[in-house]
């Protein structure tokens, strides 16, 4: 049943402090670019009726380098990421991924913070954040905490974010080595991922994460370990089977996702050898 729009309450914030105070007062769902919001409202799957609009919190839009850390404000849109020289220089695979999110209209509104918060297993930026060991910066009126991306999700569309906290930024430590990204979507543009893979290869060190193949984005720990132990590509690809738990859904099949994950990991390992 479609949600009645007139019953929804929203408060706007223009500063982080305002937003945090609103979240402290009562439980509200933050909305940024709102690109996923109306889909949920159309299907009536969102139970929350109160929102805090943070779209105009400009201080969260910054992309900067702090020391050797790349700091991406939560409200950086995909368009911002595509255009940022800092992203191009330090994390080009994130720009590549951003170009493949929706069309320009979605890229103009969708934000990296929203992609993290929405917690879809198919979120295109998430395998990248996982592979580069990003840190999610959460803030509330009582303070700020940094959560390693690997610890951020606790289950399907669930995370450690408390209701009074806002994702304000994501921090990317230096990424030495080669970056590799591949999205297998339902079509060439405006596509939801069937399999999405991000990898970083620095000599013998290898980091690899996949989306759309488990309830949350997954780091391919077993495959990584196999290679770290000096085992062959075939063995690493075999190990990958236990890293992922894909399902059949309206977009693809578990078999296909297994096959393509294996093929792409093999390609990644071959191309970055």
């Amino acid at each position: 049943m479609r949600t009645a729009i007139s019953t929804l309450a929203v408060r706007g914030a223009t500063t982080v402090r305002q937003a945090l105070e609103i979240l402290h007062d009562e439980e509200r769902t933050p909305i940024a670019g709102a690109t996923d919001l109306f889909v949920a409202l159309n299907f009536g799957t969102l139970t929350m009726r109160r929102f805090v609009d943070i779209w105009n919190v400009d201080e969260l839009r910054r992309i900067a380098v702090d020391g050797d850390t790349l700091v991406i404000g939560a409200l950086a849109t995909y368009t911002d990421l595509i255009r940022s020289p800092m992203i191009a220089a330090r994390l080009p695979m994130l720009a590549e991924a951003s170009r493949l999110v929706g069309g320009p209209q979605i890229q103009n509104r969708g934000t990296i913070g929203g992609n993290i918060a929405n917690a879809s297993p198919a979120g295109d930026s998430l395998p990248i954040l996982s592979a580069v060991d990003a840190v999610v910066v959460l803030r509330s009126v009582t303070g700020e905490r940094r959560v390693a991306f690997r610890d951020f999700y606790t289950g399907y569309r669930e995370s450690v974010r408390r209701r009074d906290e806002l994702i304000v930024a994501v921090e990317i430590p230096p990424v030495p080595g080669r970056q590799w990204f591949r999205k297998v979507g339902t079509r060439a543009a405006q596509a939801i991922s069937k399999v999405v893979i991000a990898g970083v290869r620095d000599g013998q060190s290898l980091r690899l994460a996949l989306g759309s193949v488990a309830p949350t984005v997954v780091r391919a720990r077993r495959a990584e370990a196999a290679l770290a132990e000096g085992r062959s590509i075939d063995e690493a690809v075999d190990a990958l089977r236990a890293d992922i738990t894909p399902i059949d859904d309206v977009r693809s099949t578990a078999d296909y996702r297994h096959l393509v994950s294996a093929n792409l990991v093999r390609r990644f390992l071959t191309e970055t050898r």
Binding site: V39, G103, R187, A188, A189, Q190
Partner: peptide, 11 residues
């Protein structure tokens, strides 16, 4: 239209 896939300009 997210899940029934018709060609875009790039397809």
């Amino acid at each position: 239209l997210t899940n029934y896939i018709i060609p875009t300009s790039l397809d």
